Computed example of a mutant assay.
Amino acid sequence: MTPAVAAAVSVAEEHGIRVLDPVVLNDSFNLRVHLRPAPVVARVPTVTALGRARPADALRRELDVVSYLHGQGVPVVPPSDLLPAGPHLRDGVALSFWKHVEHDPGHRMSPETAGRALAGLHEALRGFPGELPYLGPVLDEPLRLLDLAPLREVARDRNVDVVIGVVHTTPQARYNYSVDLPADGSAPIYYAKWHFAPGAPFRHGDELLFAGDHVGLANCMDLNFPAPIRDYARAGARLMAVPAADEFGNGRQHSRMGLLRGVETGLSVAWAAQWGTPMISDPWGRVLAERDTEGTRKPFVMAFADVPSGPGPTVYARFGDWFAWLCLAMAAAGLVALRSVPRQPGRGVGGQGAVLQDAAGQEEPARG
């Protein structure tokens, strides 16, 4: 029994479904398993899971859409009503459950019949209350289906997560990703960069994603800004893995900006610069390892070190720019207080002049 089939059987049995003879109906882009003798089919994304950062999200949308169509009387195979349809997650496997419908393998539907059925389906979907993103998530899948097998093999063999930076271009948009290849061989995790130079033709990300429990993913210019790094500290990160492009001439300066952002938020930083200065720093600003790529065109350089976990979010990470706002508030309060103090009579330039004149008019004491 494969891990995917075992996961489907395990979840079904936990919900009271008696499974004696699981039969694989189809194993292509998705695995479909009839959980005999129950009239339940488990659907497990396999190849499609490699192209989606969160396969369960696609399963949830599919269940919502089909449930709506079934309620509208459209002839679709509905989700199972014998157990929660899902999506479920078990041992890294996402899956959903559907009603098993007997069919005639020899039956062939004419193009005209299929076309009319498809048109009716689209017409019924006009009233769907949920979100239906344009071609989503298909536009994002080509990058996720790239052949990352060699690096994934390295991650599995050495039992370490591998994080790389990738620029991906589609006809509609460009993306800059930090991609985590997990040590356990599970599906890659794709973090989309948040910040770009003005006018850069990239689509901005807005999610926090982790490589493991406490390693946050970011990308290059993201460390020029308080967010998302401050948000990562609050969310439990202790180390930031940061692929960066940088440039010759300012790479070291940019790596130090990343270092200071780590000190500011209480995080260690692993800065993997394509050019410039690959660097590893601890949360107190000490450089544990670095390599200078200036003036060299070697295929790669390495910086490695034992990295301590950060202590957690600093006061700044917890409360933000409170000290700056406090200073501004105190300065404003001081100005208001000065304006409210009344002037005292007899003081100032006129009073001083009268005193000087009186002193000058005094008679000089006799000598001798």
Rank of each mutant, 00 (worst) to 15 (best):
A58M: 03
A324D: 12
N176G: 08
S255T: 06
L335K: 04
R318I: 03
V315L: 11
P39E: 04
V242Y: 00
R43L: 10
G262L: 03
H88C: 13
L181R: 00
A173H: 14
R339C: 08
S96E: 04
I164F: 05
Y68S: 11
S340L: 14
R18C: 07
H103C: 03
D140G: 12
S268F: 00
A183R: 05
V101L: 10
S309G: 12
S110M: 02
V11T: 06
V77E: 07
P84G: 12
A119W: 05
L135Q: 08
L20H: 13
S281R: 01
A270C: 09
P345N: 13
V167Q: 11
H168F: 12
R43M: 06
E13R: 15
M109Q: 06
A245T: 08
P182E: 03
G136W: 15
S96T: 12
P308E: 01
K99V: 10
Y190I: 00
H100K: 13
G312V: 04
E294Q: 08
V167K: 09
V11Y: 00
A270D: 00
T169V: 13
F202Y: 15
R116I: 09
L95E: 02
D91A: 15
T48L: 10
Q72N: 10
D140P: 01
H15K: 13
V341M: 08
A114E: 14
A187E: 07
D306Q: 12
H70T: 13
L326V: 03
A359R: 13
H88G: 10
V23S: 12
T169L: 10
D246E: 13
A38Q: 02
P75Y: 07
L326K: 02
H204Y: 08
E294G: 08
G71H: 14
P55T: 05
M330S: 11
A183Q: 05
P182C: 05
L31G: 02
H195L: 11
F304Y: 09
A53Y: 04
L83N: 13
R18H: 11
T265V: 11
G258P: 01
V315W: 07
Y134I: 08
A273V: 07
V19R: 02
A272M: 14
R252W: 10
E290M: 05
N159R: 12
P129S: 12
V47P: 00
D358R: 08
V263C: 10
G368Q: 14
V47H: 09
W325H: 09
G127E: 12
R343V: 13
W275A: 08
R144S: 05
T48R: 06
V341K: 09
E207M: 10
R158T: 11
L208G: 03
A197N: 15
L181V: 02
N219G: 06
Q362V: 07
N250P: 01
R238N: 10
V269R: 00
C220Y: 01
A183H: 04
I280D: 00
A6V: 04
L82G: 10
C220D: 07
G130R: 08
R261N: 13
R43Q: 10
D147I: 05
P228L: 08
R60V: 09
N26E: 15
A192G: 11
L288A: 02
A333Q: 05
R18I: 14
F29N: 11
S281T: 14
P243W: 04
L267A: 09
R52Y: 01
Q357I: 09
